[in-house]
């Protein structure tokens, strides 16, 4: 057992296992980190208890303890980065929707930003709906 970037990590033959608290790192954050490791190692997720996700990283070939610790450390670090990206996304979701609407749907009327954000909230609009106007309309 060792502490790798705050996660208690169990090192075995070719594998490193640790548990993540889902109330700290949401599942999509864990998945976001896991995805980046799929080419390098085998990644297994399990649920040992409610709100706990066990992450098992298994090396594709031989790996010594230092390598496994480094792998686990990198995963733990990536969890932080994924969490930051999620926070940036959440903090900017509405303004991004507004900007993209303005970019692609030509919102013309000048108005205060608060009013327009409120209008967006009221709309049921799918984000990033990119139109394909090169289809001829007579078809």
């Amino acid at each position: 057992m060792s502490d790798v970037n705050g996660l208690t990590t169990d090192l075995g033959e070719r594998r490193a296992r640790f548990e993540v608290d889902e109330s700290i790192y949401a599942l999509d954050t864990i998945q976001g980190a896991a995805y980046l490791f799929l080419d390098r190692c085998y990644v297994f997720l399990d649920r040992p208890a409610d709100r706990r996700v066990a992450v098992l990283l298994k090396a594709k070939g031989d790996a010594d303890e230092a390598t496994l610790e480094a792998l686990a450390g990198e995963f733990a670090n990536e969890l932080l980065n994924q969490a930051l990206r999620k926070a940036v996304g959440a903090s900017n979701a509405k303004i991004r929707e507004f900007i993209l609407a303005k970019a692609f749907f030509s919102v013309d009327a000048p108005s205060s930003i608060d009013k327009l954000l409120a209008e967006l909230d009221a709309e049921e609009m799918e984000p990033l709906e990119i139109p394909v106007p090169w289809e001829k309309s007579d078809g």
């Binding site: 999509d28 976001g32 896991a34 085998y42 990644v43 297994f44 997720l45 298994k58 984000p127």
Partner: peptide, 22 residues
């Protein structure tokens, strides 16, 4: 088992991303 598990996780994440709000 290792290869399939990776693929199952890959597919889960790709499908979830496709459906997630951006």
């Amino acid at each position: 088992p290792d290869e399939f598990s990776n693929h199952a996780l890959f597919q889960t994440i790709v499908d979830a991303r496709e459906q997630a709000p951006q």
